[in-house]
Simulated assay, not measured.
Amino acid sequence: MTEYLILAAAAFFAGMLNTVAGGGTFLTFPALVYTGVPSVAANATSAVAVFPGYLGGALGFRSEIAALDRKQLLKTVAATAVGGLAGSLLLLVSSNEAFSAVVPFLLALATLAFAFREQLQGWAQRHSLGKPHGPFGTLLVALFGGYFNGGLGIVLLALFSLWGMRDLNLMNGLKNGLSFVLSAISVATFAAAGIVAWPQAILMMVAATIGGYAGAPVARALPAGVVRAIVIVVGATMSAIFFWRLIA
């Protein structure tokens, strides 16, 4: 019972954090590993657990998403689906040992990309990357997200910054929508492969959905600086924990 309470609480706050700024899997993945689920199965189960929360978050930002250019949005969604499928298939051929070794670096990369996204945006603008010119960047981010869902929202926000987007609510809405598309593909892939711990996943799906919808008004109410600080602190903390696990 204690383990299930831990998983439910982690999923609720993960759903809220994903809606606010991303990084919710920084909570669900460690919680699953802590309760004894092997790392690859924990990653797959975590992806299943948080994906309904993305839908709740997207619905919470539906007015912001409706303001986006329809044609560009469809192209971005298609690139996200292709990259997410490729990343999910890549996870299926990874061993627990190999996956555990690469996780700390992926977490650190996601956190650094978000922390220094303003500098990255300036570099992108100087090199004529201030607007989305093609699907390549989206494909790469989706590949990352399909392989390791942790930090997906953070990397998506960094990508949007490279595109020149400034409105954090608009960025959060698009992030949640794309995360839902990618995670739906990952969930189908992992379920077909039989690597999902379903009792834990179902409990966490319910909690993450509630947290995801609750996160939209929180995101609007919090100052942008506070949201950014939360993501950076969570990402840095989890990166340090998993580096410690790797070398211990």
Rank of each mutant, 00 (worst) to 15 (best):
G84R: 03
N96I: 02
V82E: 01
Q119C: 06
L112Q: 06
V50K: 12
S46C: 10
G60A: 05
T76M: 13
V77M: 10
W123L: 13
Q72C: 02
G60D: 10
A58G: 10
A86Q: 03
G130P: 11
A42R: 04
F51L: 11
S128H: 15
V50C: 08
V50I: 14
P104T: 02
R126N: 14
V102I: 15
G60F: 11
A115Y: 08
S100A: 15
L91M: 07
G83W: 01
S63D: 14
A44W: 01
G87Q: 00
L120I: 13
L74I: 08
V93H: 11
G57L: 09
Q72T: 07
A67T: 12
V82Y: 01
E64N: 11
S100V: 01
A101D: 02
V77C: 08
F105K: 02
L92E: 02
D69T: 02
F51T: 13
V82D: 03
F116G: 07
T80N: 05
D69W: 04
G87D: 03
R62D: 07
A108V: 04
G122L: 09
L129R: 15
G56Y: 07
W123R: 14
F116M: 08
T45V: 03
V50A: 11
R70Y: 03
G130A: 08
S100R: 13
Q125S: 12
L55E: 05
F116T: 07
A81E: 03
V37Y: 01
Y54K: 11
V82G: 04
Q119N: 14
F105S: 04
S39W: 00
G122Y: 00
A113C: 14
T76N: 06
K75C: 00
A47H: 11
S39G: 04
R70L: 02
S39P: 13
F51S: 15
E97M: 09
A66Q: 14
K71I: 01
S95T: 15
L73F: 11
V93M: 10
R117S: 11
A115V: 10
Y54D: 07
G87K: 04
V102M: 06
F99L: 13
Q125V: 09
A110D: 04
F99P: 01
